[in-house]
Design a protein around this nucleic acid. Structure first.
Lengths: 193, 193
DNA sequence: CCAGCACTAGGACGTTCGTCCTAATTTGTC
DNA sequence: GACAAATTAGGACGAACGTCCTAGTGCTGG
């Protein structure tokens, strides 16, 4: 019980620090200090830095699956997609400070040529598949995946620029533009042919 | 003469390494090794790591200004904007491996809380102002800046996702979509009122 | 031809990194 | 209450980091 509690706290702080300071720039001392434990204790729970990175990615995968599942309760597919788009608004403060957690981690791991890059990119895969499902529900048989990637790319772009500019008005304007795009997207349900 | 030649080679390699491996992950030994000089020699040309980062950013600012100036020879504003969009195609191999040099550096410096972040963001400022000029030339008086930021954000999004997915077809599809968007954008020249 | 300066090499510095080890403490079980 | 296992603290390890220092080299101007 105590074991998993400490492990949980380590993962939590590591997750936040990897996001806010970057994976490479976050040391074991940083995490241990944030959790309030010794470095030695650390190695009882995680045997290496890559090990805790794996745990953080697993954590994010699980959290993402849970979030997508929660959104599945929304009746209309367009409302589900709106839920995704509006993460940008909900998390605007953190996004303007540190960008998107998924995009920035994947980018960093790509530069580090790190083995975990593909696993981090799996988080994108979850969003991609889920969004494609929604677009298929809107009747977009053939271009569902392309539309999903389009929404993902637009969101990533907003996150990068909002972080670079520290400009909330820009972020809100681009989210509105994306919502308009979605609204004008033809709902092809029952208009087959 | 010899001085500036070595300095130039250091800046060149540092620029590439900061892009491909990241600023934090690139050590002085890495740069010195890539250039083929000793670490001691390094400090005769640059007094600190921040110093060479400054030089690299200055270098990129100058290169960007030169590129934009070259594009100014294109007659039609839409063609100029196309030149910008097509960087994604021209540099696709590097972008799929390391993302956008401007976006990834700005993102990393934001996480590091580095003083040079705002200077790195100035590169975005150059593109932003130049793109806004082109949209103004197309008659977009009031929304020129918003359109410029939109193009920048779309491009950044493509770069992030292309790097995460390592998918050239996606990159080309999104560039096409952006070109279509630009093509359908009303040219408001001489249609005032 | 020599004095002075820019340049280069290479090692020393203190610090921090990720990792490992050992010893103490807590916890759970019979 | 004793004993084994899990948990914790804290220091030691070598390597690598950014930085600094010193000594040697080569060009240049008087």
């Amino acid at each position: 019980m105590s074991r998993s509690a400490t492990r949980e706290r380590i993962e939590e702080k590591a997750d936040a620090l990897f996001y806010e300071a970057g994976f490479e720039a976050t040391s074991f001392a940083d995490i241990a200090g944030a959790v309030g434990i010794s470095r030695g204790n650390f190695y009882h729970h995680f045997k290496s830095k890559d090990d805790i990175l794996d745990a953080v990615i697993s954590r994010r995968l699980t959290a993402t699956r849970a979030m997508l599942e929660a959104w599945d309760t929304d009746a209309a597919p367009k409302d589900r997609i709106l839920s995704f788009i509006r993460i940008l608004i909900t998390n605007r403060t953190k996004i303007m400070a540190f960008g998107c957690p998924v995009g920035t981690l994947t980018t960093e791991l790509a530069k580090l040529d790190h083995i975990a890059e593909s696993r981090a990119a799996e988080i994108f895969g979850l969003f991609r598949d889920w969004l494609a499902d929604q677009f298929r529900a809107l009747g977009h048989k053939d271009d569902a995946d392309a539309l999903a990637l389009h929404v993902l790319a637009r969101s990533q772009g907003v996150a990068v620029m909002a972080s670079a500019l520290k400009d909330e008005a820009f972020l809100r304007a681009e989210v509105s533009a994306l919502e308009t795009w979605l609204d004008r997207l033809p709902d092809q349900t029952s208009t087959k042919g």
